[in-house]
Write a protein that binds this DNA or RNA. Structure first.
Length: 477
RNA sequence: GCCCCGGUCGUCUAAUGGUUAGGACACCAGGUUUUCAACCUGGCAAUCGGAGUUCGAUUCUCCGUCGGGGUACCA
């Protein structure tokens, strides 16, 4: 039998990291086992659903590298089939019409200490199928509820093992609303059966829906899929992930310079492990190692630090050309950006060699690159204050001396270093006294790659003119 | 309230009826150094609690506790 899986997000406007991980597990499993992955958009909530929202989710999946074999299908397209399934259950006596008023039933149930749905059932059974049919034909609106049988519902979960639910605890759930629209549990079962889904891998939050759905499969006579409920992802305080924990959407992370390989690696390692000590894994390695048997049962906390660390490591694997492309994208909004520098492959490679260890994310990489590829510097005012403005006279003197010294120097790291250190001893100051103001003049920042590397990469002309500019800045204040 | 799931360093996790309970991120210290990183070395740090089974439980069982999910004519 061909394995068929599905990922079925609601189009809520973004791809949640929890949803993304569910998608990744489905994808890994499908690709690993040669199965088929179906994408279905659960858009039955018309208020929240929109085409733009759907697009955001598809883009998020594509960014991650999660591709699908069939779909996207839309749950709303199956409404007729959902309705037909509900009606069939009604005809077969496995469901019944509900004419009651919900609020009144709830109140009565509370007074009598019963499940509301059981109160409804009692009333509707008393009413009898014949009179129910007559009232329906007379045009009275009604919902359809599943008649939950006595006994116990037992099914197998790949993550949790055997699951048992007493049917007394399961409501006679509404499967078709009085406005004729299907409810979630019916729609899911009807769609999954229609799509011949064999493995339902989804978040733990659906675990208590599972017995209801199993009951529906059995009532409808559809073959049951295998379930696998994966644990949830929590925020840093162990609570459900929410806005106050920071970004929740994969799109936000993409914008913050996380690369998709790192995101997939990180998410795959939440709730699953390869069984050995591997942490840094490529897509292919994940695929090779993945298996449902190693899915964990317990929820895990989303640790941004670890994500960023992994991101840095994945960045190491990026080629110079790929990174140059990222830099172009990220820096294009800077008017003073001279992308031509990046065309010199040797220069590019030296630059990246210096800034890659200093950046974990693409946006940080771009900030590190900025002084080397943009004409306008962003000055860190704290740095300017400390090393230039605090003792302006000394700063000017030192920068001017450096200017004179460098002007006649061969532009090699070695010679630049020798001449700077010579100058420092002539002036009877530590080398740092020259280096710090110089660094700010050249980069605008307190932190940068080694100063001689900076000089070398910037080149004579730009270095000298930045020193001049810095002197000018001090004079102008 | 009721139903369900879960609990190993701060975090992600490994392991086992008998181990000095391993690794990684983070953190701390040292090295390196012109800054910031990177890098190297070292360190801190965990089996939720209580019973039971057992020669022996972190591992198996029960109870409690804590956390999570569900309990809709939401998905």
């Amino acid at each position: 039998m061909n394995m068929r899986l599905r990922f079925a997000p609601s189009p809520t406007g973004y791809l949640h990291v929890g949803g993304a991980r569910t998608a990744i597990f489905n994808w890994l499993f499908a690709r690993k086992e040669g199965g088929v992955l179906v994408l279905r958009i659960e858009d039955t909530d018309r208020v929240r659903s929109s085409e733009e929202h759907t697009k955001v989710i598809l883009d998020g999946l594509t960014w991650l590298g999660v591709d699908w074999d069939e779909g996207p299908f839309f749950q709303s397209e199956g409404v007729e089939r959902h309705r037909a399934d509900a009606t069939r259950l009604l005809e077969e006596g496995k469901a019944y019409r509900d004419f009651t008023d919900t609020a009144a039933m709830r109140l009565e149930a509370k007074e009598r200490g019963m499940h509301p749905s059981r109160v409804v059932r009692e009333k509707m059974m008393d009413l009898g199928a014949e009179s129910a049919k007559q009232r329906a034909e007379a045009g009275e609106p009604f919902a359809i509820r599943l008649l939950v049988p006595d006994g116990e519902t037992v099914f197998d979960d790949l993550v949790h093992g055997e699951m048992r639910f007493g049917n007394d605890d399961i409501d006679d759930l509404v499967i078709l609303r009085s406005d004729g629209t299907p409810t979630y549990n019916l729609a899911v079962v009807s769609d999954d059966a229609d799509m011949r889904i064999t493995h339902v891998l989804r978040g733990d939050d659906h675990l208590s829906n599972a017995p209801k759905q199993v009951l529906l499969y059995r009532a409808l006579g559809y073959p049951e899929p295998v379930f696998a409920h994966v644990p949830l992802i929590l925020g840093s305080d162990g609570r459900k992930l929410s806005k106050r924990h920071g970004a929740m959407a994969v799109g936000d992370y993409a914008e913050e310079g996380i690369v998709p390989e790192a995101m997939m690696n990180f998410l795959a390692l939440l709730g699953w492990s390869p069984g050995d000590d591997r942490e840094l894994m490529t897509r292919e390695e994940l695929l090779g190692a993945f298996g449902m048997e190693r899915l964990l049962k317990s929820a895990s906390v989303f640790d941004i630090d670890k994500l960023e660390w992994l991101n840095g490591r994945h960045l190491d694997a990026y080629s110079d050309e790929e990174l140059a492309k990222c830099l172009r994208d990220l820096l294009q909004e800077d008017d003073s950006f001279c992308s031509g520098f990046l065309d010199d492959v040797n220069w590019l490679s030296e630059l990246l060699g210096l800034i890659k260890p200093r950046a974990r994310r693409l946006d940080q990489l771009a900030e590190q690159a900025r002084p080397f590829v943009c004409q306008n510097l962003h000055f860190d005012m704290k740095a300017v204050e400390k090393h230039l403005n605090k003792d302006p006279g000394a700063a000017i003197k030192r920068l001017q001396s450096l200017y004179e010294t460098f002007r006649g120097a061969d532009w090699t790291r070695e010679e630049l270093e020798v001449s700077l250190r010579d100058l420092a001893s002539q002036m009877e100051v530590g080398a740092g006294k020259l280096i710090h103001p110089l660094r700010i003049a050249l980069t605008g920042n307190m932190a940068s790659p080694g100063i001689f590397d900076v000089l070398y990469l910037l080149g004579r002309e730009r270095s000298l003119s930045r020193i001049e500019d810095a002197v000018e800045r001090i004079n102008l204040r």
